[in-house]
Design a protein around this nucleic acid. Structure first.
Lengths: 136, 136
DNA sequence: ATCCTACGATGGACTTCGTCCAAGTCAAGA
DNA sequence: TCTTGACTTGGACGAAGTCCATCGTAGGAT
């Protein structure tokens, strides 16, 4: 939506048709797409867009904090456009569905000083695993 | 260690020199190695061992629950031989090093009922990210 | 102890995911 | 409208991992 586009413009992003299309694809559905899926959907609107541009743009969106990379075990990275609303993921071990969840608690605070090994801990990523109603 | 080897043998694993070497490499240090590092170390003892065999063996160890795959964003998978002792991970965003940590708190309990969407939540995986002293 | 055979190992081709680069294009400020 | 440097392109490249036909061998059978 233009919300995202407006924010990007406000940060001095040079607006090109390619970047607009990628941003629109991401904002369109709140699904977790792979880079290739983003490219596919972007190409539906702008056939000449190149893979390199999609990768570049996704990387920039991640750097700007507008999108989060979701690490999936073994497969291609997925991009989560819901970055402004901090959340975690609940994954069905049966069918792979991903849902956004908002646990309470303070996971970073739960890591004791002596377990930090001098690291500057900046973020925490929590993945709940289980079976969805359909798979149970 | 022969602990691991004994368990594997007990499960009907056909013991070959390649599998023994891979298991020994993993059990040797409690470090989180990539498949390539495992191959490198295994080849130091058994020069002819192939990459495919290392991948196969690691996959089997994971399937048997003896080793856990650590998903790292954008880097090669790492293999954690410490699967029998539940723990979480602290990952350096700079160099990719992984350390085992034991946070307090009750992450599963922190997920409210209305955020579970009817899932039977069985486990939680927490990854802390930050910069290690060397990369900071 | 030796023989058999199905399971495991091999290595090279292949796939997937992603990055890099030189050259061309174009958004937006002057 | 002109200029310029940021952006895009496509193809080569690279890293990680899988596949497969063939060969070797662990370990049960004899």
């Amino acid at each position: 939506m233009s919300d995202l586009l407006r924010r990007l413009r406000g940060r001095g992003w040079r607006m090109t048709s390619q970047r607009r299309v990628v941003a629109e694809v991401l904002a369109g559905d709140h699904v977790h797409l792979t880079a290739d899926e983003v490219h596919l959907r972007a190409a539906a609107r702008l056939p000449e867009i190149s893979r390199a541009t999609v990768y570049n743009t996704l990387g920039e969106l991640v750097a700007l904090g507008e999108v989060v990379e979701v690490s999936t075990v073994g497969r291609a990275k997925r991009y989560d456009p819901n970055a402004r609303n901090p959340h975690q993921h609940l994954v069905c071990s049966g069918c792979g569905t991903v849902r956004d969840v908002h646990p309470g608690g303070d996971a970073i605070g739960d890591l004791p000083e002596e377990e930090r090994f001098g690291f500057a801990v900046g973020s925490v990523e929590i993945t709940y695993r289980g079976l969805c109603p359909a798979c149970a």
